[in-house]
């Protein structure tokens, strides 16, 4: 318990001291202050030599970030390390990362261009195919049309031939029938006369052919 109350006191002291110091630093120029604090611990004239000692041992005297004694060393090491960092970044790391990104970008762009080119080629091929298909369809249609026309004409011709042949034969047949009919009709009188002659001969004795004929003619006129 005693130790911890002491802690609080020490803490409070440290804070108070800190506040006091900050006030001092603002009030006094840093250089002067550093020399002053160095003077408390070592010979004040040996400024350069006391700087590091002031920094290492007497930290409660000077707020470390405002301890001018450490500035030179820090600046030197900052110059060395930051210079090295800049060189490493600008010569090695950044060109390499930039190169990686550039390579990837060109690769992606190249791939995209290639894809675009292939797509256009495909479209062209598809268009050509479509055109060829349309052409073929048109040709097929034309051929079909032509064939149909040819067949139709052929059928028409043959039908006409057949019809003409039929008509001729009908006409011939009709002519023959008419001739036969005429002939038959022409024979009707003589047949009737002969029949009449025979009938008359059977019934009433002989009759001359001329008489029979005259009689038939007389009857058929009636």
């Amino acid at each position: 318990m005693a130790g911890s109350t002491q802690d609080i006191i020490v803490l409070a002291q440290a804070e108070a001291g800190d506040a006091l110091q900050q006030g001092e630093v603002v009030a006094a120029p840093a250089e002067e202050h550093a020399a002053e604090s160095g003077g408390e611990h070592a010979a004040a004239d040996a400024h350069g030599a006391t700087e590091t000692h002031a920094g290492t041992e007497a930290h409660s005297e000077v707020f470390p970030p405002f301890d001018g004694a450490t500035f030179g060393g820090q600046l030197l090491w900052l110059a060395i390390t930051f210079g090295a960092l800049y060189l490493l970044m600008s010569r090695v790391a950044l060109p390499r990362i930039g190169g990686i990104l550039e390579t990837r970008r060109t690769r992606i762009e190249g791939d995209l261009r290639e894809a675009e080119r292939l797509r256009q080629e495909t479209e062209k091929a598809a268009a050509a195919y479509e055109a060829a298909l349309a052409e073929a369809r048109k040709n097929a249609h034309a051929i079909a049309e032509e064939t149909r026309g040819g067949i139709k004409a052929d059928i028409e011709g043959r039908r006409a031939d057949v019809e003409a042949g039929l008509a001729r034969r009908v006409a011939e047949a009709e002519g023959r029938i008419r001739a036969d009919k005429d002939a038959a009709l022409a024979n009707v009188g003589s047949i009737a006369a002969e029949t009449a002659q025979v009938l008359v001969a059977r019934i009433a004795g002989s009759v001359s052919a001329a008489e029979a004929k005259a009689a038939v003619a007389a009857v058929s006129k009636e």
Binding site: D7, A49, G55, H59, T70, G73, L76
Partner: peptide, 27 residues
């Protein structure tokens, strides 16, 4: 046992390279 919030900013020598203040410090 001592809490000193300022101590963490203290610059200390790790390798002292002479008297000219070019020591290799924690910073």
């Amino acid at each position: 046992n001592k809490v000193d919030p300022i101590h963490q900013f203290q610059i200390t020598d790790i390798v002292s390279l002479g008297e000219g203040g070019v020591s290799f410090t924690n910073s």
